[in-house]
Computed example of a mutant assay.
Amino acid sequence: MNKETTQLVETLLASPQKAVIIGHKNPDGDAIGSCLGLSFFLKKIGHSAAVVMPNDFPDFLKWLPGVEEVVIYEKETEKSTQLIEEASLIFTLDFNSLERVGELQQILESADAKFIMIDHHQQPADYAVATFSDVTMSSTSEMVYHFMDALGHSEILSEAIAINLYTGIMTDTGSFRFSSTSPTTHRVAAKLIEAGADSALINQNVYDTNSPDRMKLLGLALSNLHILPEYRTAYITMSQKELDAHNFKKGDTEGFVNYALSLQGVVFAVIFIENKQESIVKISFRSKGEFSVNAFARNHYSGGGHNNAAGGKSSQSLNKTISEFISILPRYKDELAHA
Rank of each mutant, 00 (worst) to 15 (best):
M1Y: 10
E4Q: 15
Q7K: 15
L12Y: 08
A14L: 13
A14E: 14
K18R: 11
K18G: 00
A19G: 01
V20Y: 04
V20P: 06
I21N: 07
G23F: 02
N26D: 10
D28L: 07
D28F: 09
I32W: 02
C35I: 00
S39I: 04
F40N: 06
I45K: 02
A49D: 01
A50M: 03
V51K: 02
V52G: 02
V52H: 04
D56F: 07
P58N: 05
D59Y: 13
K62W: 01
E69L: 05
K75V: 04
T77P: 00
K79D: 03
L89Q: 04
L89G: 05
D94A: 06
D94E: 09
S97F: 05
G102S: 09
G102P: 06
G102C: 03
E103I: 00
E103P: 00
Q106F: 01
L108C: 01
D112E: 08
D112C: 03
K114C: 07
D119N: 10
H120E: 05
H121S: 06
D126M: 14
A130G: 14
S133Q: 13
T136I: 00
S138E: 08
T140A: 12
T140C: 13
S141I: 07
M143A: 08
Y145N: 04
Y145R: 03
H146L: 12
H146K: 14
D149L: 12
G152T: 08
E155F: 04
I163H: 09
N164H: 08
N164P: 11
Y166Q: 06
D172N: 10
F176D: 08
R177S: 15
R177H: 15
P183S: 08
T184E: 12
T185G: 00
E194L: 12
A197E: 07
D198L: 10
A200E: 15
I202Q: 13
N205E: 14
V206T: 09
D208H: 14
T209A: 08
N210A: 13
S211M: 06
M215R: 04
K216M: 13
G219W: 09
L220G: 03
L222P: 13
L228I: 15
T233V: 13
I236D: 11
I236F: 12
Q240N: 15
Q240L: 11
K241N: 14
E242F: 09
A245M: 10
F248Q: 02
K249A: 09
G251V: 08
G251E: 12
G251C: 09
F256K: 11
Y259H: 15
L263A: 13
V266C: 15
V266A: 09
F268K: 05
F268A: 09
N275T: 05
K276C: 11
S284N: 14
F285R: 07
F291W: 05
F291S: 03
N294W: 03
A295G: 01
Y301E: 06
Y301L: 07
Y301W: 15
S302W: 06
S302P: 00
N307F: 04
N307C: 02
A310R: 00
G312S: 09
G312C: 05
S314R: 08
S315D: 07
Q316N: 14
N319T: 14
T321P: 13
F325G: 11
L329Q: 05
P330A: 12
R331V: 04
R331L: 08
